[in-house]
Design a protein around this nucleic acid. Structure first.
Lengths: 210, 210
DNA sequence: GAGCGAGTAGTCAACTTTGACTAGAGAAGG
DNA sequence: CCTTCTCTAGTCAAAGTTGACTACTCGCTC
């Protein structure tokens, strides 16, 4: 959440809550993370209180609606942003939404660093896997865990396929895919004021509960 | 959370919070879900308030510590339990911890139903995949999403490998693995009073003194 | 025989998330 | 001209989560 919001504000330079909200929808974040209005506005306020963002009270907008608050990222916020971003890319905590946020923002780093972080991620997954399999392997033979063992198996399978996917991503990046920081014209990751979102949702989204 | 707690209480017949807490640790739930003391006690109280559990105030325990409250599952709670369990097994909402909880408790259903639910899960994943790929496939060729497309790719990859794993599980269950409801001696999924947990973590628990 | 650590059982404040709601402006339609 | 819809921008109460903390007992050691 904080990572996403900081990333959105940072790309705009200065943004109000509704803009952030739209960016996150543009990124599809409402599908794979808990990016709902309440969370976004809460994060903005909280981070403003903590000095990661600077808030400007602004007169009511041009297009109706309540007065809005604009936010700018502070130096402290930028630091925190990169800390969170690096962590999202390296640590394997099994929260897929954290990785997704990291992927969406990784181009704020330079290519070499992104690669290094993803390599580190591979190692993290390896360590996690080793710890888990050693720890939960019963001494008196497999199978004594019964169906509970399926949980373990599921997690290990997820780790393995996650590692495989990460390896693929590393190849693609190493092969020159995408435009990272300092490589010229960056990918436009936010919507300009007034630009309409080509991925704006119709009512039902692919991730909605049925 | 609610699913896990209901499942634990139900298997005991009658249980106090600390017992539930221990069961969840036995299942490894502290690894793959947010099963911390605070959440567990909160869920118990909340569900008691809502009539899913019935609370009995009990005198201080035999072995020191504050007075404890014992809970029994009500009829309403049992209904809710099976509703949550079926949902956890069928719906693909990308929250791996929900599936894990479902796996740990699936043997409370009979084999045929578990299989049917998992088949349904396969279909859900298929639908999700179709919706997402159709929805986010740009008309003007792939690649216009830029690195944002990697998020999509990651999710689709997860869905595919998740489906593959589910297929494997279905095979194992169909092949006679595990003991489901009504198939005689059930797998012992909870700890008896006083039994020590062979998988107790050597790690520090939240709440431990430093 | 005092102190210490470990186990038992649970509470609490701070924080985050959720989902429903508000309220004004322009557009659309009859 | 009046109603209804959609977009803009955000608020709020209720629920859930986190991590630290309490308080009590038993066994052990120094």
């Amino acid at each position: 959440m904080r990572l996403l919001v900081l990333g959105a504000v940072r790309q705009h330079g200065r943004a109000h809550g509704y803009q952030v909200r739209n960016d996150l929808e543009y990124w599809g974040a409402h599908e794979w993370s808990n990016a709902k209005p309440g969370s976004i506005y809460h994060a903005l306020k909280q981070m403003a209180k903590q000095g990661l963002l600077h808030a400007h009270e602004i007169a009511p907008s041009t297009a109706g609606g309540p007065p809005r608050t604009e936010y700018e990222i502070t130096e402290q916020g930028t630091e925190e942003y990169f800390r969170l971003l690096r962590e999202a890319l390296t640590s394997y905590d099994q929260k897929p939404d954290v990785l997704s946020a990291g992927l969406g923002l990784m181009v704020d780093l330079d290519r070499e660093e992104a690669l290094a972080l993803l390599e580190q991620r591979m190692r993290s997954i390896g360590e996690w896997r080793k710890a888990v399999t050693e720890y939960y392997t019963p001494e008196d033979g497999p199978g004594r865990l019964g169906h509970i063992g399926e949980i373990m198996d599921f997690w290990v399978h997820s780790a393995d396929t996650g590692a495989e996917w990460t390896r693929g991503l590393i190849e693609r990046i190493r092969g020159g895919a995408y435009t990272f920081a300092g490589e010229g014209e960056p990918f436009v990751g936010v919507l300009a004021e007034g630009e309409e979102n080509p991925y704006a949702t119709g009512e039902r989204h692919p991730g909605d509960a049925h």
